[in-house]
Design a protein around this nucleic acid. Structure first.
Lengths: 199, 199
DNA sequence: GGTTTGAAGTTGACAATGACAACATACGAT
DNA sequence: ATCGTATGTTGTCATTGTCAACTTCAAACC
């Protein structure tokens, strides 16, 4: 298991931190956040049960690092998608990595605890806000961004947890998501003013 | 601790199941779902560490029961609120019982596993759909309901997890929520087809 | 009224886990 | 070549979920 640069077994793994993160990501998707046991991750990385403590202060720190890594991949994909495809990219990410998504947004980790995690999370959000602001056709970009983020996030989570299994019966999750997203328009901030609306 | 009908200590608790659920709810809000330990719950109920097994098959079954109870209270409050105040009631519930809310919608429990939980969850959803349908001014009630549910749910969770701490700086969570909700309109379902569409 | 029976609680045990301490190894600077 | 220190290892401990065997007690039955 401990595949270093060469196949030779060395006392020191040589590349353990990334290996642990890979193993953790694997266990995470298989078993969910609660199944990510420090010892199991160490087992898969081919090291002793205490080796992870050289790279992570605790089980929670390992989970936080995995979540931070998830946020980075998430941010990258969102940025690459561009403003028009962000919603579907968001939902696709959630459906592809359901457990990682739960870990990232489940609220189990406090964002304030881990600096990397906090930064990664904020980066993802600001990327979305910037995209909405650059569109220019929305009166209150910040509010609209918050609404869009909420809508897409809620839709992702409810889909993930099976709350729309029958509602999305014939068309599949993505098709259902498109339909739901299409039913929403963003307007100006003030409630009683029905001005123009954009996609 | 074991306060039965009278204060007298009996070998049999006499009212243990509800007592365990109360204790579990208490620990849940204090420590989060991961902190709900079978032994700790038993401790608070004043019984031995194995007494809970007479009423719940496992730790997960206890959590499922707590979640189901949460869904019932949630449904009741939503129903009592009426169509106009459902969104704020939803968010208020999430803010009042953040950990219970996470347990209910966190996806840790599989809804298919526990019958009561599944039924309670579905009940809450159908109540919302019915409310939207009875309004009558929405072309596609089911899609609109799904969108509204997603929006409000996502907003709740993102608020809970602190992703809007700075965006909602001056006005507080509820005020911010009102502003975000006010920025959204519901329209017909199909984007490319301006005619009416059926579910 | 006395007996019995079974649900509700208890004590005891076991493997697994997260975390700490002490020890071993090997890479890189000197 | 030596030596220090980051990196892994073995050993240990309290805690947890769960299983098994034992107790208590209240209600059903004769």
């Amino acid at each position: 298991m401990s595949t270093s640069p060469r196949g030779k077994r060395t006392y020191h793994h040589g590349d353990l931190r990334p290996a642990l993160l890979r193993a953790a990501a694997q266990v995470l998707e298989e078993q969910g956040p609660a199944g990510v046991l420090l010892r199991e991750v160490a087992r898969r990385a081919g090291v002793s049960h205490n080796a992870p403590y050289r790279h992570f202060a605790s089980r929670e720190a390992l989970l936080a690092a995995a979540a931070a890594q998830g946020f980075e991949e998430f941010s990258a994909r969102m940025q690459a998608a561009g403003p028009g495809a962000m919603a579907e990219t968001y939902i696709a990410f959630a459906l592809e990595h359901p457990q990682l998504f739960r870990l990232m947004f489940g609220g189990t980790l406090k964002l304030s605890s881990d600096a990397d995690l906090s930064r990664a999370s904020r980066g993802a959000y600001e990327g979305l806000v910037a995209a909405f602001r650059s569109r220019g056709d929305v009166p209150d970009p910040q509010t609209a961004a918050a609404a869009a983020w909420s809508l897409v996030h809620g839709l992702s989570e409810l889909l993930l947890n099976g709350h729309f299994v029958e509602a999305s019966a014939g068309e599949g999750a993505i098709g259902f998501a498109r339909r739901v997203l299409g039913a929403v328009r963003f307007a100006a901030a003030a409630p009683p003013r029905p001005t123009h609306s954009s996609e």
